[in-house]
Amino acid sequence: MQKTSPIGIFDSGYGGLTVFRSIADRLPDYQYIYLGDNARSPYGDHSFDTIYKYTLECVEWLFAKGCELVILACNTASAKALRTIQQKDLPAKYPGKRVLGVIRPTAEVINQFTSSKTVGVMGTRGTINSQSYLLEINKFFPEIRVYQQSCPMWVPLIENNEHLQSGADFFINEYCRQLMTQSDDIDCVLLACTHYPLLLPKLKKVFPDYINILTQGEIVAASLVDYLQRHPDIEKKLSRNQEKSFFTSGDPLAFDEHASIFFGEDLKSEKM
Rank of each mutant, 00 (worst) to 15 (best):
T194D: 06
T4S: 13
E243M: 10
S47A: 08
S260T: 12
D251W: 10
S166T: 14
R21E: 09
S245A: 14
Y227D: 11
L35G: 05
E68L: 01
F246H: 06
Q131A: 14
L224G: 04
S245G: 04
E68I: 03
D251V: 10
A107E: 03
H195A: 07
L191D: 07
M1V: 14
G126M: 12
Y52R: 00
V99E: 00
I234K: 04
N75D: 06
D187Q: 05
I213V: 03
C151M: 11
P201W: 09
K88P: 02
K271V: 14
M180N: 09
Y52H: 03
S239R: 08
I51L: 03
T55F: 10
L157C: 04
Y30C: 02
A81C: 06
P232A: 09
P42R: 05
M153T: 09
L199V: 05
N212P: 07
V59I: 15
E143Y: 05
S166Y: 07
C188A: 13
R98Y: 06
F263K: 02
N111L: 07
K93Y: 11
E162I: 12
F63P: 01
S116V: 03
K93H: 12
T84A: 12
V220S: 01
A192T: 10
A79S: 13
A259P: 02
R230W: 00
G101R: 02
T76G: 13
L72D: 01
K65H: 08
V146S: 06
A107G: 08
L72S: 03
G126F: 11
V109Y: 02
F255C: 03
G101Y: 06
A77T: 09
A221E: 02
T50P: 00
T114R: 00
T18S: 11
S115R: 15
S132V: 13
S223V: 06
A221Y: 05
D233F: 05
L56K: 13
T194M: 04
L134G: 11
F20V: 06
K268M: 06
D184S: 10
A168L: 13
E68H: 09
I128H: 10
T50D: 09
H195S: 09
K53M: 07
G101V: 09
L224N: 04
Y43I: 10
S239Q: 09
Q182S: 12
K139Q: 15
T118L: 02
D11W: 02
I110R: 04
Y133L: 12
G36P: 05
L214D: 03
Y147C: 05
W154S: 10
I51C: 00
W61D: 12
I33E: 05
S150L: 07
G217H: 02
S115F: 13
V59M: 12
L134Q: 15
N111A: 13
F207L: 08
E235S: 11
A221R: 02
A39Y: 05
E270A: 13
Q2V: 15
Q86L: 06
V19S: 04
L135G: 00
Q148E: 15
L200A: 12
